[in-house]
Design a protein around this nucleic acid. Sequence first.
DNA 1: GTATTGCCGAATGGAAAAGT
DNA 2: ACTTTTCCATTCGGCAATAC
Length: 349
Amino acid sequence: MSAVHYVEAICASGLSIFDLLPKESPLYIPTKELENLLDEGLRGFSTAGMPLRTRSKVVKSEVCRVLGYAVPKSFRKCNKPHARFPGQNFDTYVQASDNLQIWNEELKPRRRYVLISVGEAGLVDKVKVVTGAMLAKLDTTGALTQKYQARFNAGTEALELVSGNDTSQLQPLIGSGASISSSQPTDDPEKGSVLPIRTVFEKLSSVVGTSFANAGSDQERNRGAELHRLVCKALAYQSYADDGQFPDVRHQLLEVKLQTSPTIDLGLVEPSSTEPLDLNELPEGTVRHCDVRYAIFGAAANDGQVMLTSLVLTSGEDFFSRFPRFEGKVLNKKIQIPLPRGFFGKAKG
DNA sequence: GTATTGCCGAATGGAAAAGT
DNA sequence: ACTTTTCCATTCGGCAATAC
């Protein structure tokens, strides 16, 4: 029985991708045939210039056509415990790189994972279909990466100090910041090195209204680094340094965010958390995550420039009173599976 | 023995689709 | 219109392998 037979049968059945198939259904396409159909049907399909989510949707639509299904108005999310294509029990991932990421779900051993490789010109290269059981072998650590998110809105004031005072736990460290000129921004805080939140607010206020060159839409991290540099300068550090650790300006217990979109990505740390911050020099528990100060800069990107338009400064403790936490899943988790070299078989030719 | 490069695991982040 | 989840590229730190 040729693979095309399945497509004709699915088409004739009038079923949608969301309709579950009974056990042993003749419409259920075995994994190998599924791979053949999709590889032949999608190869050469162009996704050039599309944003990621758009690309994903357009490719899913094409998958429907290739398999003989009607293209649904939307591809439902949150339809756990089912796959995105429940009837055929598969998910699709369109990959230009080798980092396969699966959010908020375990690998399901019986589910199929349709992995679609796109090349440099945005054309589909190759489609591989594997089971969750096969992918599980590539997941060597089982580690989950997690992040919190919150909603950003700039508010009405260009300059807004949410927390008038630092948390009481921080008071022993607060001082005039005499050591700033001789310290690195990445050094641990010392007694007396940490400026009061009001002083930080005054010093950072001058940064609002300035702008810098936009490194480009695919260089987001560099934009954040430029703001980080401006912040270090405004706080009178001699140098700019960033070691990627939390918080950004560790010596001031200050986290800096650049917002040109409405989602604040908080990463691993929940600002209101009373977990201790890991510091070398001070006893554990001296500083907690909620004692850290957050400088959230609103910005607009246009004409190749990033213009800083607003600043909100808050303690971690007060963070969620100003920026609502995403309350859906609250904490999002993913596994990341590096696809091995040659996974798509391009190397062999 | 030291410096550089490569690799791997994991984290970070923007922003569009889907949901309400 | 507004909220939340999804999507996946990119980047970083740490370590191993290789070059000097």
